[in-house]
Design a protein around this nucleic acid. Structure first.
Length: 431
RNA sequence: GGGCUCGUAGUGUAGCUUGGUUUAACACGUCGCCCUGUCACGGCGAAGAUCGCCAGUUCAAAUCUGGUCGAGCCCGCCA
């Protein structure tokens, strides 16, 4: 017999059908027994009235086949339930279960560490599973949008010979007789592909940061949504592209993830435009309006990021805010300089957290080489990268979005690890 | 690299400040009995923890001290 999905049960009233799934809940109410079945499409209530059907040994979370006839029933959830004729246990679940998986998280209140220790099992929970359904939609919408704008999807190596952006640490790996590193960004490669003639490219791939921190917003391997575009006027073209991207993405999420958003009590706003502040203005706002003191005026610290987002929400009714005109000292060597020691680099903050870094890049060969030297890098080590800059490199720019951070902020998750299936952090290598 | 906090049944917590009537409590889960409309079902009962580990102080340690292992958070840095 073909299998029917939970979501389709209502279309088979009166027919004998087979359901497959997991035993979500068992409720014994006297001589009536309810078995709630869960499959990938959701829940469906089944009812056992025949006293010859023995379910006394049925365990929650066992994988089962349930046979029976659906009927309309006012008292059932969604008005439909299946009257059981037979239950087959495909594979029994052992007791005890690692934790209560069939309830809303606010009721089970399981700690992130227990969730991650039992990661596949934890995703039996509808609320936890919904995070990754939404994340899949974020990534799908990203790819669809980029393609619609003429971007080519590329896949570049995560095994590299040298780092791109000085500051962050690289994971060294042994590559036969050579020393190699895990890529911290596809930066060089996406720029090279712009110069190659594709003009517009995007990549969805893991990147690796050997940063020795343990916070609710850092993981050492994360999924980076990168794009790079050629023949731009300046960084504003990149910013405009990201605004259109986020508008499209939010529309798609509202349309295709209504259930997931509702499960997390999230109502996505319509993005009209996104305000911009120069870094110097942002610092002034923090100092003047919030009495914040800065030790380093090259960047906003996490507290300042939260304050500026609070300000943006109040003044512009926007959860997002771009910070622009960062000084050269805080940005990577390939960032296009602007007047007064500033750059054409920007960040995007969302609900108090940095989710994007981008910029216009240097496209002139001599300027790039001299910038490299200023940063203490040897141009001869990067010949593979520099070559294309000799042969007519267009003006260009791009950005990178942290997928898990974006997911975390959209769903108001406390910890970024909740937005990552198998997070790699300072101490965790399994599962 | 610097700082702060937490480890108590399968899960989540209380108890620790002020060591002793604690036989370590509560909720969920598990097991048994009852219940013909549950939907966070309900009622009655039961099992399940040498209080992370090691050492110390003490007549007495879940409780105080030191070490150790594990975990969470903040800062620097970053998406």
């Amino acid at each position: 017999m073909n299998r029917t999905l939970a979501i389709d049960v209502k279309n088979h009233i009166g027919e004998e059908i087979k359901l497959n799934g997991w035993v979500h809940q068992i409720r014994l109410v006297g001589k009536i027994k309810f078995v709630i079945l869960r499959d990938r499409t959701g829940l469906v209530q089944t009812i056992v009235l025949d006293k010859n059907i023995d379910i006394s040994n049925l365990e929650r979370e066992s994988a089962v086949a349930i046979f029976g006839k659906p009927k309309l029933e006012k008292q059932a959830p969604n008005g439909v339930e299946l009257e059981v004729s037979k239950i087959e246990v495909i594979e029994k679940a052992q007791s005890p279960l690692p934790f209560e998986v069939n309830r809303a998280s606010e009721l089970t209140n399981v700690k992130i560490d227990s969730i991650l220790d039992h990661r596949p099992f934890s995703l039996r929970n509808l609320e936890l599973a919904s995070i990754f359904r939404l994340q899949a939609e974020i990534v799908r919408a990203y790819a669809d949008f980029m393609r619609s704008q003429g971007f080519l999807q590329i896949h570049t190596s995560k095994i590299i010979s040298a780092g791109t952006e000085g500051g962050t640490n690289l994971f060294p790996i042994q590559y036969f007789e050579q020393k190699a590193y895990l890529a911290q960004s596809p930066q060089f490669y996406k720029q090279m592909m712009v110069g190659a003639g594709y003009e517009r490219v995007f990549e969805i791939g893991f990147v690796y940061r050997a940063e020795d921190h343990a916070t609710s917003r850092h993981i050492n391997e994360y999924l980076s949504l990168d794009f790079e575009m050629g023949f731009i006027e300046d960084e504003q073209d990149v910013i405009k592209m990201e605004i259109k991207l986020l508008q499209y993405m939010f529309e798609q999420l509202k349309k295709n993830c209504a259930q997931e958003l509702k499960m997390h009590n999230v109502e996505l706003p319509e993005i009209k435009t996104i305000p911009q502040l120069r870094l110097s203005e942002a610092i002034k706002i923090c100092t003047d309006k919030y009495n914040k003191k800065f030790e380093n005026e090259n960047d906003l610290d996490p507290e300042a990021e939260r304050l500026i987002c609070e300000y943006s929400k109040k003044e512009f009714a926007s959860d997002f805010v771009f910070i622009t005109h960062y000084p050269q000292s805080g940005r990577p060597f390939y960032t296009m300089p602007a007047e007064d020691g500033l750059t054409r680099g920007f960040d995007l903050l969302y609900k108090g957290l940095e989710v994007t870094t981008g910029s216009q890049r240097i496209n002139n060969f001599e300027m790039l080489v001299s910038s490299m030297k200023k940063f203490g890098l040897k141009p001869e080590d990067f010949e593979f990268y520099l070559e294309i800059f000799r042969y007519g490199m267009p003006s260009h720019g791009g950005l990178a979005i942290g997928t898990e951070r974006l997911t975390q902020q959209i769903l108001n998750l406390k910890n970024i690890r909740e937005a990552c299936l198998f997070p790699r952090d300072r101490y965790r290598l399994t599962p």
